[in-house]
């Protein structure tokens, strides 16, 4: 494995157990090409977060362990490193649920992201200016306590903070969680921008299949700890199974939850009537 290999991250057949008994991932393999955005899709409990944490070594803090397979990041085998060491190697995870430091100001939050780097005051200023050029909203709010900013701002802050570590690879865990659609597209636009201009490779775990695939190069769909499908984003967006199960579009056209529910209710009503009569 050389550092110039095509893939910055390669996962081969990993299995993950929590507390040595609860198996969360059975057999997951994926790779992230250098400078690309890869989406990791699936429902609740599919194993998206677990996969990301296995890569960033945050698993250990939740008593989880990679029991089989291997993870190669940028030519290094990820085994017993701790998250601090991984950040040193240029891999940063943005945790699910934003996790900003609520009592610190927005700017202090961003500065903590550079903790692993030794920056002079003027270098720090340049870095901050650069970050603010991507996240205009945060500049206006830099003196506010992070805990009082909106959900969208906190998500931006979490990404901005991670970018301050100058990562080669970013792991994003559900950036769209709990946000209005407009904000979600704003955040994905910034993520795409960061990927193109800063050349950072991104592995993105999402439940919002549609927007994730539209902003990615490649996608993996996992279900109950196994990779079920994978392919280029375009291919997945046009795949019938993906359309039906993850995008809510059936062959007969769009089918959303409300329609499905209505069908079921009507169906039940009919049954009831037929019985009483």
């Amino acid at each position: 494995m050389t550092n110039n290999s095509k893939d910055i991250l390669k996962i081969e057949n990993i299995e993950v157990m929590y507390d040595s008994v609860i198996s969360a991932l059975h057999d997951v393999s994926l790779s992230v090409p250098r400078g690309k955005i890869v989406a990791l899709l699936g429902g609740n409990g599919a194993g998206k977060s677990t996969t990301l944490k296995a890569i960033s070594t945050m698993l250990a803090s939740e008593r989880g362990k990679v029991t089989k397979g291997k993870i190669i990041y940028d030519g290094t085998s990820v085994t017993n490193q701790n998250p601090t060491e991984m950040v040193g190697l240029g891999m940063v995870q943005v945790l699910e649920g934003r996790r900003c430091f609520g009592h610190l100001t927005v700017e202090e939050n961003i500065i903590t992201g550079a903790y692993s780097r030794k920056l002079t005051n003027s270098e720090m200023k340049d870095e901050l200016d650069k970050i603010y050029s991507y996240f205009n909203r945060l500049k206006d709010r830099r003196k506010s306590q992070a805990g009082f900013t909106s959900g969208g701002e906190q998500q931006m802050l979490a990404v901005a903070r991670a970018m301050m570590a100058k990562p080669k690879m970013l792991l994003l865990d559900e950036p769209s969680m709990g946000l209005a659609p407009q904000l979600v597209s704003e955040i994905f636009k910034i993520v795409k921008d960061l990927n193109e201009k800063e050349g950072v490779s991104i592995l993105l775990a999402e439940q919002n299949t549609n927007i994730a695939l539209k902003n990615s190069d490649y996608g993996y769909i996992i279900e109950t700890g196994n990779v079920k499908l994978h392919g280029t984003a375009e291919k997945l967006l046009n795949n019938d199974e993906v359309k039906e199960l993850y995008l809510g579009i059936s062959k007969q056209g769009r089918k959303n939850f409300r329609d499905a529910l209505r069908d079921e209710v009507n169906h039940k009503k009919e049954n009831k009537f037929s019985k009483t009569n």
């Binding site: 945050m58 998250p83 950040v87 945790l95 996790r99 430091f101 903590t112 992201g113 692993s116 301050m164």
Partner: peptide, 13 residues
């Protein structure tokens, strides 16, 4: 930062 959220603190190094 650690006082606020040790997990997040360790995630950024």
């Amino acid at each position: 930062a650690v006082a606020d959220d040790p997990g997040a603190a360790s995630s950024i190094g």
